[in-house]
Structure formats: C-alpha cells, structure tokens
Simulated assay, not measured.
Amino acid sequence: MQKQELGFCGPGLMGAPMIRHLLGAGHAVHVWNRSRAKADALVSDGAQVVDAPAALAQRADVVLLCVADGAAVEQTVFGEHGLLSGTGTGTGIRRVRRIVDHSSIAPELTRELAARAAALGVGWVDAPVSGGVAGAQAGTLAVMAGGEAEDVAAVAPILAAYSARVTHMGAAGAGQTTKLCNQAIVTATVAAIAEAVGLARRSGIDAAKLPEALAGGWADSTLLRTFVPRMTQAGLAPIGALKTFQKDVDTVAAAAQQTGTPMPVAGTVQQILRLGAAMGLDQADLSGFVDVLQTPRQG
C-alpha cells in the first residue's frame, strides 16, 4: 500500500507495538505522549517525536489515538495545543484529515467528538480493538470501527499493519458500542474463570491444570488459556490494570441504563471490580479478579 506520514498519540502497552508495526510497514510515524519517555523509547525504531498533538496535525493526514479514557481523548484533540486546537507548536497549516481513535470510551462522547471534528472538516473513526497486548505485538488485533464508510475504507489499509481484520459496524459510536459488547463478554468470562480457579483450589485440585483438562471442550477459550496461568503463577509481566476493566464496565453499565438493556451479569462484575478498587487492587493485573474473590473460608 501507499506509504503515509502518520501521527500517533499514546505509545503505551498497546500503542507502542502498534507503532512498531506501522514503522515496519514503511510508514513515517510522528509520535506524541504526555510523558515523553514512552515516545522517546520508539526513536530507535524510527519514530519521530513531537512536543504537542498540534504538531502532529501539521505533519500527518491521519492521526491515531490510543489513550486512557474519554477525558484524555477530548484533551488530546480539542485541548490547548490539541490536534484541532489551532494553536500549539509550529506555524504550519493543519494537514490532518482523519482521526482514528483506538481508545475505549463512551459511544455518546464519541458521537459528540466526531461531530465537533466534522464541523472542522475532519473525519472521525472510532476504532477500539480487541486482542490485548499479545494481539498488538503479533499484529492480529480485531478492530471494530464506527464512522463514515469512506473514512473507514480510507484508513483500513493503515490499520492492516497491526490488525487481522477491520469490521465497519455503523455510524460514529458503533465501534465503541461493539467494544462494550466485547468487554461485557470478556470481563464476565474472566470473573467466571477466577471463580473456577477458586473452586478448584478449595476442592484440593491443581487449578493450573484447568486449561489442559478443559481443552477442546465448551469452556476452552483464549481467555481460559491466558488467565488461568496468570491466576496461578507469580512473576508474569502485567498485560493491563484492573482499573481498565472497571472503566469499561462502568461504561457498559451507563450504556445499559441509557438503552434500557437488562445486564445483571455485567452489574455483578461491576460490583466485583468496585470491591477490588476498595481493596487497593485497581492497579493489579487484569487477572486480579482472583485476588478480589479470595475471601477467607467461613467455618
């Protein structure tokens, strides 16, 4: 495909390997991060670091975001020295024509931000991903996209550098709604795996053998094979913080309320995650469900 000059905001656990795939595909990538050290770490891979998001808007036709939450997205795009602020470092003419948001934020906020960008002549694609850090590193992420069909088609070849597929789900916000569906399934499943690990342990069997015992059965899954080792072994590198799950499940709950959708399982998961935060586990690995549920036996 045609090589492009791209901007990328947010080279974190997910963003950094995505940027490396873009560089590997031959794109020029200009990177910004609130804490500069994470951006500087990519210079040896060929990335060019800028001092503010506004500088990306002057250097790239497409800018991709992978930041923490809705407030961070809004600040990065419309805040002081933001992508579309009209201020910031440099005096060049704004080049950016499309923004691709890989962050997981509320659909309602996405629609609002997309409308504000459209008023400035900039297309918006909400493109949250699934596959975790391993998928980002392998370049096999699943991208669920919302936005105008023309904009999604235009950026799909770029996203192919680190994704196995891009599915256009509908208008702005549809990608984020699809990600909420994904997170409702993921968080409920990880909570169930934590319960199963607890039951196995208290029943005197080796919980670490559950993936082997259940392989090929209905309970077998990528999540089972990923999280049982993380719940039964120490010293594994974290793949994310439990607070990320809490943010997403809180957004699921808000969407359920807005749409009148009964989601009792998601509601229970939300309470488990709130308990985890109260226990000081919000920074724990995503497998921290098992620690929340390890209450002492009674009797």
Rank of each mutant, 00 (worst) to 15 (best):
A72W: 08
A127E: 08
R230W: 00
R230F: 03
A106D: 14
Q75I: 00
P17E: 00
A208H: 14
S103M: 06
P211S: 08
Q258N: 13
V252M: 02
H30Q: 05
V166F: 05
L199H: 06
W32P: 00
A253F: 07
Q246T: 06
A153N: 12
G123A: 15
A138I: 07
L286E: 03
G139K: 07
A215F: 12
L22S: 01
A219E: 01
L23Y: 05
R97C: 04
A161T: 10
G90D: 06
E148A: 15
K3G: 05
G276T: 03
D285N: 00
A55K: 03
D126G: 07
A25Q: 05
L113M: 13
H30D: 08
G299S: 11
A254F: 06
G121A: 00
A156Q: 13
L120R: 12
G131W: 11
T177K: 13
G146N: 02
A207F: 09
A119S: 13
R95G: 00
A142R: 10
S35G: 10
V129I: 11
D101V: 08
A191G: 04
P229N: 08
Q58G: 14
I239T: 12
R201V: 13
G235Q: 11
R111F: 00
H30E: 01
A194V: 10
S221I: 02
H21A: 01
G123E: 14
S163Q: 11
H21S: 00
M231N: 01
T187N: 14
L281Y: 11
D250N: 13
A149E: 15
L180I: 05
I158S: 05
K209N: 13
T167C: 12
G204I: 05
L223M: 13
G175W: 10
F289D: 08
E5D: 15
D101N: 14
T261D: 06
D248A: 02
D69S: 04
Q283E: 14
G276V: 04
C9I: 15
R274A: 15
A237S: 14
I93A: 15
G198T: 02
G121M: 04
